[in-house]
C-alpha cells in the first residue's frame, strides 16, 4: 500500500501546485495556507460544506478572482512549474478552462459558441473552425444531438445539453486543465451520468479539477479528493482512502453526513 503510493507519487507529475496559498475578500480570510499538488490526467474532486472556499480556490487557479474588488492573494500557484502571476490572465485562462455551475452558453448559435474561443485565439479559417467545432462537440458527447442544428441558438437546448455544450466550448481552446464548479448540480440523473462518463473519457487528455456536493459523484469518478473546511484544506488523498479510511475526524464526520 505504502509502496504503491510512493511509486504513484514518483511518476505522476503534477500540473498545478499551490504553495501557502492565502486569499482574503477584504477582511474575510477565505483560503488559508493551501498546499496542494494536482496530478496530471486525473480527476481531482473538491468537497466540503457550503462556504468553505471551494469555488474561491477553483477561481484562483485561473485568476477569475482578479475581477473581484478587494481580493488579496498571497502565496504561489504554478502551472507546470510556471508561476501563474507571470502569465497574462487571458493566456492562463486559455490553458486552464472553466465550466460553471449554471450552464452559460452565449446567446448565439451552437457553432458560434464553440468557435468563440478559437476565434479569440486567432483562428478564422472556416475549415479549421468547422473541424474544431466538430471535434469539440464529439469530445463532449453532444455531436449527434446537435450536428443538424449547429446554426440554431444554443439557448434552445436542454439544460444538460447546454452544460455539455459549455464543456465543448471550453475544450475548443485545447486547455491543459479543466475546472468544473458544481457543473452537474442543476442536472437530472441521466444528464449527470452522461457528463460523468464524459469526464472519465476526458481525463485521458486533460487534467480535471471539479467541485462537487455529491459524495457519490466524487467516489464514483475522482482519483483524488480534497476536503475543505472553513478555508482550510483538511485532507487531500486518493479518493478510496478518503472515503474508506479518512485520516482526519472532521473528514469522516463530513462524508458520513454528520454535518455540512
Amino acid at each position: 500500500m505504502i509502496f504503491t503510493e510512493k511509486r504513484q507519487g514518483d511518476f505522476m507529475s503534477s500540473v498545478i501546485e499551490t504553495k501557502d496559498l492565502n486569499l482574503w475578500y477584504g477582511k474575510h480570510h477565505a483560503l488559508m495556507d493551501i498546499n496542494m499538488a494536482v496530478p496530471k490526467n486525473q480527476i481531482t474532486a473538491l468537497i466540503g460544506p457550503s462556504g468553505c472556499g471551494k469555488s474561491t480556490f477553483l477561481r484562483t487557479l485561473n485568476r477569475m478572482n482578479d475581477q473581484i474588488e478587494g481580493v488579496r492573494i498571497e502565496g504561489e500557484i504554478s502551472l507546470r512549474g510556471e508561476n501563474i502571476k507571470n502569465l497574462d490572465a487571458n493566456v492562463l485562462r486559455s490553458r486552464v478552462g472553466m465550466v460553471f455551475q449554471k450552464a452559460n452558453p452565449f446567446p448565439m448559435s451552437i457553432y458560434d459558441n464553440i468557435a468563440y474561443g478559437p476565434r479569440i485565439l486567432g483562428v478564422h479559417k472556416k475549415k479549421e473552425l468547422d473541424e474544431i467545432v466538430e471535434t469539440s462537440l464529439k469530445q463532449a458527447a453532444i455531436w449527434d444531438e446537435c450536428k443538424d442544428r449547429l446554426k440554431t441558438s444554443a439557448l434552445g437546448m436542454s439544460g444538460g445539453q447546454q452544460q455539455r455544450l459549455c464543456i465543448a466550448r471550453a475544450l475548443a481552446v485545447k486547455p491543459e486543465v479543466l475546472l468544473l464548479d458544481e457543473s452537474t448540480s442543476a442536472l437530472d440523473p441521466v444528464s449527470t451520468s452522461k457528463i460523468e462518463d464524459l469526464l472519465l473519457e476526458l481525463k485521458k487528455k486533460y487534467t480535471i479539477i471539479m467541485v462537487t456536493h455529491n459524495m457519490q459523484q466524487a467516489a464514483r469518478i475522482a482519483d483524488r479528493t480534497a476536503f475543505f473546511l472553513l478555508g482550510e484544506l483538511i485532507e487531500y488523498d486518493n479518493t478510496e482512502k478518503i472515503f474508506s479510511h479518512p485520516a482526519d475526524k472532521r473528514t469522516e464526520d463530513y462524508i458520513t453526513g454528520r454535518f455540512g
Binding site: N62, M64, R93, G97, N104, P105, P107, G117, I120, A170
Partner: peptide
C-alpha cells in the same frame, strides 16, 4: 446582460474588452 455571459467569455481567454464587444454588446 447577465454576468454569466461575461464570465464565460473571460474564462475562455478573452480579454475584458473583447468580452464587452463580442459578448455583452451582441447580447
Amino acid at each position: 446582460v447577465p454576468k454569466e455571459y461575461e464570465e464565460g467569455s473571460l474564462a475562455l481567454g478573452a480579454t475584458y474588452t473583447e468580452t464587452v464587444f463580442k459578448v455583452s454588446l451582441p447580447a
